[in-house]
Nucleic acid binder design. Structure first.
Lengths: 207, 207
DNA sequence: GAAAATACTGTCACAGACTGACAGATTTTT
DNA sequence: AAAAATCTGTCAGTCTGTGACAGTATTTTC
């Protein structure tokens, strides 16, 4: 038997990752056809070839098994440099940039269309996303407050605006996609940022 | 027996309203001491003097029995005049005005402090609020799109920004309140709107 | 004022979500 | 190969939430 100790992933991790994918797959399959309400965890577990108990060792609900995590987005946001010398507007622009790149990237992922279609018609899944966003806003808010030395209110607003822009861009893109039209993600995101400025700052765009 | 038919509320409505209050009260009492997790619907029902089954005829979960509805805010927003001639910024200002007044009003309500303290330390209750906000955003977004003739993206952004400002102002106020300090609600809300503009419109504040 | 229609509540029964405990199997480490 | 750590399934149990039915109170109708 060849030595593969250089490889950090062993059989255990492989199997875990595979199980995760199977659960995701099974969940999407069933939610797509029967809807969130009518789908039971038992049926998901059966389709994924595991016990019901094991399902809950991977995900804490069928909703969270369906929606993708926001870990990458969070990482992208936290990896940006935020100096105390920057103005709130500059910080927002910096983070929005990270968001735009990540957005364009995630749209390319396999299964994006599938999940977005599901999200548009299943409020309970949107709820699950909202829970993740709550965590993201808190984390980003804390980071901004500490690293950029903004007031609590400013930091929170920056974080909320980031999440808000992301949400709107995402939803607009998904709607376009569902309608058969195709659009440029980065451009769409930038358009959201642009509209945001126009809406909230009356003086800057006076007639 | 005196004729009271002029009074639109009969014994039935009275009793219903009283039961609602009892449930709210019992829920807050128990959540306050034991937390959301540890409190069962059965215990709430017992304290409110009703059966468990009846509890679910009034509220669909213990979370929603604890948080106040957003019906008044929604009414206030929808009662504002939105003409197609208005710019997105003007629409936002108009709605923000309604929000500010409602905010100052709600802060005065009895039980506000109690609920806000609870919300600050119970994520599950925040989740329940978030569900209501989702509905509010959708409703406002639709109204804005139809009555002010904005693009879907603009309408959605306006609605999200309203909700966002409300949330931040609310949270800041609650935090101040919890810390023993007292602040002016209308002023605080206006400050949030101000900061919002400063954050999202770089060109307007570039010194 | 009685009778009929309507609304509210409690009891019962049940499905589904989720968790703790334990035992057996598998992988990893020594 | 033995020991330790990890993963999984089974079992039993609590809690949430809902449909069905019957009994009671209220309102409406005559």
């Amino acid at each position: 038997m060849p030595d593969e100790s250089w490889n950090t992933v062993g059989k255990r991790d492989d199997h875990k990752a595979a199980t995760r994918r199977q659960i995701q797959q099974a969940t999407l399959d069933l939610l797509e056809t029967a809807g969130v309400e009518a789908t039971t965890v038992a049926s998901i577990a059966e389709r994924a070839g595991i016990s019901e108990r094991t399902f809950f060792r991977y995900y804490d609900s069928k909703e969270s098994a369906a929606v993708p995590g926001q870990g990458e987005l969070l990482d992208a946001l936290l990896s940006r440099e935020l100096a105390p010398s920057m103005s709130p507007a500059e910080i927002f622009q910096e983070l929005a940039g990270a968001c735009r790149e990540q957005f364009a990237h995630e749209v390319e992922q396999v299964g994006f269309g599938r999940i977005s279609r599901l999200l548009l018609r299943e409020p309970r899944l949107l709820q699950a996303v909202s829970r993740q966003e709550m965590h993201l806003v808190n984390t980003v808010s804390d980071a901004v407050e500490e690293r950029a030395r903004l007031s609590r209110m400013q930091a929170q607003l920056v974080a909320e605006l980031i999440a808000c822009t992301w949400r709107v861009a995402w939803q607009c893109f998904a709607r376009e996609e569902s309608a058969g039209r195709t659009s440029n993600p980065a451009e769409l995101f930038e358009q959201a940022v642009q509209n945001l400025a126009e809406i909230s700052a009356p003086a800057a765009f006076g007639r």
